[in-house]
Amino acid sequence: MVTIPIEATTPYDVVVDDQDRWIEMKEWSSYSMLWVVTDEHVDSLYGETFRSKLTRVHPHVVWSVVEPGDASKSLSSLEHLVTEGLGHGCDRHTLLVAFGGGMIGDLAGFLASVYMRGISYIQVPTTILAHDSAVGGKVAVNHPLAKNAIGSFHQPSGVYYNVSRLDTLPVQEVRSGLGELLKHAYLSRYVLESSFEDDLFLALNKGEEMDWVSWLARGIRVKQAIVETDEREQGIRAWLNFGHTFGHALESVESYRIPHGEAVLHGMVFAFLLSGDEERAERLFDWMRLNDVTPIDWKPSAHYIERMMVDKKNRHGSIRFVLLRESISVESVSTEQIYSTLEKMKGWWGR
């Protein structure tokens, strides 16, 4: 078990373990009820067991289930959940439990931030990818024109990982989670005392079983270093969007056919090409091809640029990217550069 304390407006611990020991250790008496939000897939796998554990420590457990997939991260889902919460009598002293992957964490976290003007919540992640989204307090739902366009900052009161639940992840979800872990590996050289980029590629290329407690903790420590310095994304927290400008646009253009973490993998290749670092772009691209990352069903370049224009990092109509060189920068990039990079990426996938 690894415990990582996060110093934020609301300090909390991230616990990475291979079981649910935290349930017996947590103080529950101050909460009027527990309100679990999950999706149908997680509910079918773990719902009965997890609910049983919670009912042993609290007499009032409310259970809400939404459809899996990013389409549920919407205002209509939010309204439905508010209706369920009010119908069950959830009040300001309710603890909301986000039990699932990144979509559930974002949706339930945003629900917690607005329900009765804000209630406490905890994250109980069930995916690798959620080691990024569950930490840091950024919560949101999507708008048809832009991913995460409707959101807020609302810190959890705890994040509790049980990595044994990762055993049932489909291969595509593992790849998606590795997208965010690779992102943290690339950022590690700038925010930690030493980089684990090469170590992670070595572990991945060996094809051995991953020690998820250790690897997720390493990724979380990168995010810890950044969010403790810049909790509300006024400066270096934007670094965590590395690979996301093109990645989010790709998700939207593909109608969310490509999982978020895989879209970020494509986005990091794109960003490396923009910065002129073809060596790192090629190593990542080769790993993606070898591991059957979902290929892009290329649309006209204007489609991606249109979606990139609504990215949150943009200023005065410019398109801005997080670029990794000797130092990290957030730079405006011309549409000509974007067009040429898109053409280069299309050529790589065609070779």
Rank of each mutant, 00 (worst) to 15 (best):
D39C: 08
H184N: 12
E180K: 02
R56N: 15
A149H: 14
S164W: 10
N148C: 10
L45W: 10
S74G: 04
L34G: 13
T335L: 11
R320T: 07
V333C: 07
V65A: 02
P11L: 01
V66T: 15
N142R: 11
I338P: 07
D70P: 03
H303V: 14
S194D: 15
N314M: 11
H41W: 12
M116E: 05
L96P: 04
D43H: 12
G69L: 03
M268L: 07
G243V: 01
M308I: 14
P259M: 01
R289S: 10
H60A: 13
V37T: 05
I305F: 01
V42L: 00
T245A: 08
D230I: 10
G177Q: 08
P156K: 04
G47P: 01
P156Q: 08
E27S: 09
S77G: 13
L166F: 14
S194E: 14
V213R: 09
H248L: 00
P59C: 05
L169T: 12
V15S: 13
R218W: 02
I122P: 07
L78T: 15
A112D: 06
E262P: 01
V213I: 15
G177E: 06
S332Y: 00
R280K: 14
V66F: 02
S176C: 07
R289K: 13
V36H: 02
L274Y: 00
I122Q: 05
E48C: 05
G105H: 03
S77L: 06
S164H: 14
L265T: 04
V139Q: 05
K73H: 06
T9G: 06
P125D: 06
R237F: 06
I236Y: 07
